[in-house]
Simulated scan of single mutants.
Amino acid sequence: MEQLRKKAEILGISLTEQQCLQFQKYYEYLIEKNKVMNLTGITEKEEVIDKHFIDSLGLAAKMDLTKPLTVLDLGTGAGFPGIPLKIAFPNLTITLLDSLNKRIKFLDEVIDLLGLTGIETIHGRAEDYAKPGKLREQFDLCVSRAVANLSSLSEYCIPYVKEGGYFIPYKSGNIDEELKKAGHAIGMLGGKVESVEEFQIPGTDIERTFVKIKKRKATPKRFPRKAGMPSKDPL
């Protein structure tokens, strides 16, 4: 975990021995459970540290995460970026949402194993929990590493964000064209692109782009549309 500690330091994050131990346990349990269920195609320790742990923490180089923020990790999968962010920033109150129940069970086991508090899991579809009376406009920040075009991802995520809060997707590669196409959708949903922040994982050539979308006004009630529509027919 020395590699993790040093790279986190470059991002301005000082990990304690306890936090490094939590990352170690997370890695070991991820690899153990990955033998019986599909959680990640990345299993080499150094790669997990770079492509999952440090990648998840990269947001800290572009945004102040030391405040007591409420955070939704939508389509969290094996817990990225939500669990690494929670380990490094215990002040965050995090909700992990995923549509696959077996992944949620895995995440519950990880939370228990690491002794994390102020973090919960929800099994369900993004479209369902964004409805009024559920989790709509409840979060200071929504993050997602889910692989989806920005128009679709915005329709899934922006309804969860409070006015004045942010939706920040973790994107890869050149996103100029994708961002241009998503502009209309982001505006319709009540958001505005504030900045586009590029990040390179220390010691690698792996690049990540964070799109900082600020929620300027309430999302119209008709969004998100019914299950499957945001992906099938992007705004």
Rank of each mutant, 00 (worst) to 15 (best):
G75K: 01
G77R: 03
A78F: 08
I83G: 00
P84F: 08
P84R: 03
P84C: 07
P84H: 05
P84M: 05
K86P: 07
I87S: 01
A88P: 01
A88D: 05
F89V: 11
P90N: 02
P90D: 06
T93N: 12
T95P: 01
T95L: 09
T95M: 08
L96D: 04
L97V: 14
D98F: 06
S99V: 13
L100S: 00
N101D: 11
N101E: 13
K105M: 13
F106Q: 03
E109G: 09
E109S: 13
I111L: 03
D112T: 08
L113E: 08
L114A: 02
G115M: 07
G118K: 02
G118P: 08
G118A: 09
E120M: 07
T121D: 06
I122G: 00
H123F: 09
H123Y: 08
G124T: 12
R125P: 06
E127H: 04
Y129D: 03
Y129I: 05
K131V: 10
P132Y: 06
R136S: 07
E137Y: 05
Q138P: 00
Q138M: 14
C142T: 15
S144W: 12
S144A: 15
S144H: 06
S151R: 11
S152T: 15
S154V: 11
E155S: 04
C157A: 15
I158N: 03
V161Y: 06
K162N: 10
K162D: 12
E163Q: 11
G165Y: 13
G165F: 13
Y166M: 08
F167Q: 09
F167A: 05
I168P: 01
I168W: 08
K171C: 09
K171L: 14
K171R: 14
S172V: 13
I175F: 03
I175Q: 03
D176C: 00
D176Q: 12
D176W: 03
E177L: 11
L179H: 04
K180I: 13
K181L: 15
K181M: 14
K181I: 14
G183N: 12
I186C: 04
G187V: 07
M188T: 07
G191P: 09
V196Q: 02
E197M: 11
E197D: 14
F199M: 05
F199G: 01
F199T: 02
Q200E: 15
P202R: 01
T204R: 00
D205C: 03
K212F: 15
K212R: 14
I213L: 07
K214C: 10
K214Y: 08
R216F: 06
K217R: 15
A218S: 14
A218C: 06
A218V: 13
T219M: 11
T219H: 04
K221V: 14
